[in-house]
Design a protein around this nucleic acid. Structure first.
Lengths: 255, 255
DNA sequence: CGGCAAATTGAGCATTGTCAATGTCTGTGG
DNA sequence: CCACAGACATTGACAATGCTCAATTTGCCG
C-alpha cells in the first residue's frame, strides 16, 4: 500500500471534485499518485521544447510560465501559472514538448510519472474527465490570449492581463486585498503581451497616471475594478468559473 | 442494438486509433455514438459564445472556424478546422461556450449529444484518452497562434498560416498537389492573423511577387516549400504529427 | 448586363518599435 | 556602513510596420 502523500495534492483534488463527481476510490487513487517533490529557484527551466517528457507536474507553490521562441529568437509567453495549477498534463499524453516551462519565482513542484497519470486516467475515468476539463479551460485561456494579442491595443492588452491575473488569484484563494504581487518584470510582461519592454513601461505609466492601477514595486492594486475591466474589455466567461456550480449538478445527473 | 452509423466516424476512428490502443469494444462504442447529421451552408453559426451546448460535433466535410469578438467589436479567428476535426469537444465538457463556431463553406456536420460523449468517456476511458490527446493538440496549435500573432510580423504570420494549413491538409489526406484550396477571404485571413484586410492584401501581393506563393482565385500553390517555411519560421513540432508512431508503441507498453 | 462581394491600390497617419542614455533599487563584499 | 555591480525601470528622439479612409477594379452570378 503506497503511503499517503503530503498534502500537496489536496488543493488540486478540491478543484477536481468540483469538475466531476468522484467516489472514494477515485479520490484515493488521485491522492496516491506517486510524487517527487522538488523546490526550484526562480527562472529555472522545468521543461524545454523538444524534450520527450516522462513526467508531468503540479505547481504546489510559486509562479511559472510557458513560453515559445520563434526561429528568429523572439520570445512569447503563452501562459502564466499559479499555485495549484496542473502544469503540463501535456507531458503525460503528448510525446514531444512543444514549448518551454520555466519558473518565475522560487517554486515547489510535484512531479508525477507519465505512466502513473495514464494509468489513473484508464482506471479512474472520472478523474481523467475532471483533469481533462482543466486542460480545456487552459485551452480557452489560450484562445482568449490569441484574441488579446491579435485584436487589442497595448493598453487593453496589459489591462486584460492584469484583470485575468487578479481574477485567477482571487478564485484560487490567494491573497488579494485589492492588490496583488505580480511576479513579472516588464520584459516578461512584454513577452506575454507581444509588446516591447519599452512600450510596456509607457503603458503601465499611462494606466498608473490615469488612476486605473497603482504600483508599488511589483504590487499591483486595482482601485476601481469596473474601470479597468472596461479598458481591458475583460469578460471572465473564458475562465469557466461556472464549471463549479452547474458542473456539479450535471455530473450527478448525467454520468 | 443501435444501428451502425453511416461511415462518418470511420475517418475519426482511424485518427483515434493512432492515439491510443483501442479494443473491439472501444471501437464499437465509438462508432455507435448517436449522431444527427446535418448539412449547413457557408457562413452559418454552429454555436455562439454564451450558449450552453447540449451536444458536440464532428466536421465531416467542409471548413469551419472558431472565433471570438472583443467588447469593441473586433473579430479574431482562433482556429480553422478541416474535414475530420472533432469540433467542440468543449461542448461536451464545458458548460458555457466561450467562442463562436461558424462554417466557412457548405459543410456536413455530425452532432453528438453531450451526455453520449460523457458516457463514452467514462465507460471507455481509452477512447476518452485518445480524444483528450486530440484536444491537447488543439491546445498546442492555440499556443503557436499566440506566438504567431504576438511575435511575428505580417509577412511571417501569413506565411505561417499558409504553411500550417498546407501541412494539416496534407496529413489529413486531403488533396494537395503543391497547391490547395484556401477557403478564406482576405478579410477572414486578416481576422485569423490579427491584421487588417488591406494589409493582408499587400502581404499576399508581396509574397506572390517574390515567388513564395502562387495564387489563382483561392487556390494557393507553394512552389518552394523550404523558402516559404523559412519566411514563416514554421516548425511543425507543434502539430504533434509524431503522436502516431511513438504513441502507438507507448500505449502498448504503458497502459 | 446590372449588382455585389471581394480584391486592389493610394495617401496619410499613428501605434508601437528601435536605439541609446540615464535613473533606481537591491544585494554583496570590503 | 558604504561602494559597486547588475538587473530592472524609465525616458527621449526617431523610424517603421501596419492602420484608416476612400476610391477603383475584378470576378462571379442571376
Amino acid at each position: 500500500m503506497p503511503k499517503p502523500n503530503p498534502p500537496v495534492l489536496e488543493a488540486m483534488l478540491r478543484t477536481l471534485e468540483r469538475r466531476a463527481i468522484l467516489d472514494e476510490s477515485d479520490k484515493a487513487a488521485f491522492l496516491q499518485l506517486p510524487l517527487r517533490l522538488q523546490t526550484l529557484e526562480a527562472n529555472v527551466y522545468i521543461l524545454r521544447e523538444g524534450d520527450r517528457p516522462d513526467r508531468s507536474c503540479v505547481l504546489v507553490s510559486g509562479y511559472a510560465v510557458r513560453h515559445k521562441v520563434t526561429e528568429s529568437g523572439e520570445r512569447q509567453i503563452v501562459s502564466v501559472h499559479i499555485a495549484g495549477d496542473f502544469l503540463d498534463l501535456d507531458g503525460a499524453l503528448l510525446n514531444i514538448a512543444d514549448h518551454n516551462l520555466q519558473t518565475l519565482t522560487r517554486s515547489d513542484l510535484a512531479f508525477i510519472p507519465r505512466s502513473a497519470v495514464r494509468e489513473l486516467i484508464v482506471s479512474h475515468p472520472r478523474v481523467g474527465m475532471a483533469m481533462w476539463v482543466d486542460t480545456l479551460i487552459d485551452s480557452s485561456i489560450f484562445r482568449e490570449w490569441v484574441m488579446n494579442v491579435g485584436r487589442r491595443d497595448g493598453r487593453a492588452r496589459i489591462a486584460h492581463l492584469l484583470c485575468e491575473f487578479a481574477r485567477r488569484l482571487d478564485v484560487a484563494g490567494l491573497p488579494i486585498d485589492g492588490g496583488y504581487q505580480l511576479p513579472m518584470t516588464q520584459e516578461q510582461l512584454a513577452d506575454a503581451t507581444g509588446l516591447t519592454p519599452v512600450h510596456v513601461n509607457r503603458v503601465l505609466k499611462a494606466l498608473t497616471s490615469e488612476g486605473l492601477i497603482r504600483r508599488t514595486k511589483r504590487i499591483v492594486t486595482i482601485p476601481d475594478w469596473e474601470r479597468l475591466r472596461s479598458v481591458a474589455g475583460f469578460n471572465e466567461t473564458y475562465l469557466h468559473l461556472d464549471q463549479v456550480a452547474r458542473g456539479m449538478r450535471e455530473d450527478r445527473s448525467l454520468v
